[in-house]
């Protein structure tokens, strides 16, 4: 933990886990979708479900989906702003087996019909973790530059991706692989020490077998 995990963040109250963390989860989901959702279903689990309304967890998630940071003073008015922006919000509760107490399942859809399902947890102090994307396990915090690559599960994909990154001088700090079934859809989550340059992302997108590449940078988060 660095000293700014102890002092700060600057945030809209009342809770770093239930409000600031929730806003970050909303924001990360927006970034993973690639644009502002027109539809969003937010299903709260555990302590999020029990005390979320009193902590503004629902408002904070919506604010994040609208692109607000945890310190945005407009956060408490996010429902109203979502309606103005044409974002259809549905709120509910759910029970997710084995999940952290502060967890939410988000189903979002953009204007072109692209859909995404994210499960994410708020770990305390405003720190968050994405636990799954579209039903596939994942585990990343967004604290480092992170690449999320969805690809066909076939031999050589990992080698190809790491070759592109090494040519672009991106050092991999951590790499995780997940898949639904053998030969099906796979997700690679790569955290790097350096920001992943746009050119590298473009090259990855052009790579046969890769379906979607999302790049999260901490500065934007």
């Amino acid at each position: 933990m660095n000293i700014f995990d102890i002092m700060g963040p600057i945030m809209v109250g009342p809770s770093s886990s239930h409000t600031a963390g929730a806003a970050r989860i909303g924001y990360m989901t927006r970034r993973l979708l690639g644009s502002q959702p027109v539809k969003a279903e937010l299903l709260l689990h555990g302590s999020f479900a029990a005390t979320g309304a009193g902590h503004g967890t629902d408002k904070a998630l919506a604010a994040g989906l609208l692109g607000m940071r945890p310190d945005d003073p407009r956060l408490p008015r996010s429902f109203e702003l979502a309606a103005q922006a044409g974002m259809e919000l549905t709120l509910g509760k759910t029970v997710l087996r084995g999940a952290h107490p502060n967890t939410v399942l988000l189903r979002v859809e953009d204007g072109k019909g692209k859909r995404l399902e994210v499960v994410a947890s708020s770990l305390g102090g405003g720190r968050v973790k994405v636990c799954s994307i579209d039903g596939l396990d994942a585990s990343f915090t967004g604290e480092l530059p992170t690449l999320i690559i969805r690809n066909e599960d076939r031999p050589g994909m990992v080698a190809e991706v790491s070759a592109i990154l090494s040519r672009r001088r991106v050092n991999i700090a951590a790499m995780q692989l997940y898949r639904n079934t053998r030969g099906g859809l796979a997700v690679m989550v790569i955290e790097s020490d350096q920001p992943v340059w746009e050119a590298a992302v473009e090259e990855l997108r052009a790579c046969p077998g890769i379906q979607r590449v999302t790049c999260l940078t901490p500065e934007e988060e």
Partner: peptide, 18 residues
């Protein structure tokens, strides 16, 4: 009170103890 009323504060180290 600002924290409880969803206004901007500095978590130090947390929002509840800000």
């Amino acid at each position: 009170e600002c924290n409880a009323c969803m206004k901007r504060i500095v978590a130090a180290p947390t929002a509840g103890s800000s």
